[in-house]
Amino acid sequence: MSLLTAPDTQTGLGLPASPDAVIRLENVSVRYRVPTERIGTFKEYAIRHIQGRVRYQDFWALRGINLDIQQGEIFGIIGRNGAGKSTLLKVISRVLAPTQGRVWIKGRVSPLLELGAGFHPELTGRENIFLNGSLLGHKRCEIDLKLDEILDFAEIGAFIDTPLRTYSSGMAARLGFAVATAWQPETLILDEVLAVGDEAFQAKCQARMETFRNNGTTTLLVTHNMDVVRLLCRRAAWLDHGSLRALGAADEVVKAYQAG
């Protein structure tokens, strides 16, 4: 099974054998096909199909993206709303298969967006840790090992065995963050800057991100805050209408973006 075998750098697809790359996009395009009129029922579809009247409007969310991201770097992705940032992240996190081109990813990609999306309100905090952990692809025994650490980090104390519906939104978010970051991923996706909990908890989050970075985790940062990009990122990419407008040193890309 190709997903688990060693990387084949001699694939003849023109990929350079760069040992440090963790993410490599080659000519990646994503096309959404939007039917020009909404066809909701099977009957309608069948009739139109026979008549040859199913018309689509092609919408290219990404066009010919070439990108190499090295291990351990903090890489900024900037662009206006609708420029294709989220689509790019989906392609990288394996959620969306590219319409064209090639995506090569080494290791686990952990998207830290919308924490606790898989929580169930009737289950206890503990049960939700196991549910959410396994949604992230972890085995039961792996979650067992991390359980104390997660509880400790989330600071939910005695609420651990009460249903999640009794939690405040801050507690739920803290638990979500604690589960999502309990394992160090090869690549971390941060969509907009995190704002979880109070200042003390945010400091803990920052510290954890720092540890990840020191241990070699690659970070993809999507934000509209240019100061953050300049401050944290070494390199950045500017997406515009699905294409790469600029790619290079964060300072210069931000400058170009703000100019045009």
Binding site: S2, I105, K106, G107
Partner: peptide, 26 residues
Amino acid sequence: KHLEPFKKASIYDSAQRSPAALEELF
């Protein structure tokens, strides 16, 4: 040293996927 936790990193390659039905099974 810092590479150690990633030693067994799995590879995802959109150009080299097994047949969909098998990939799903694995």
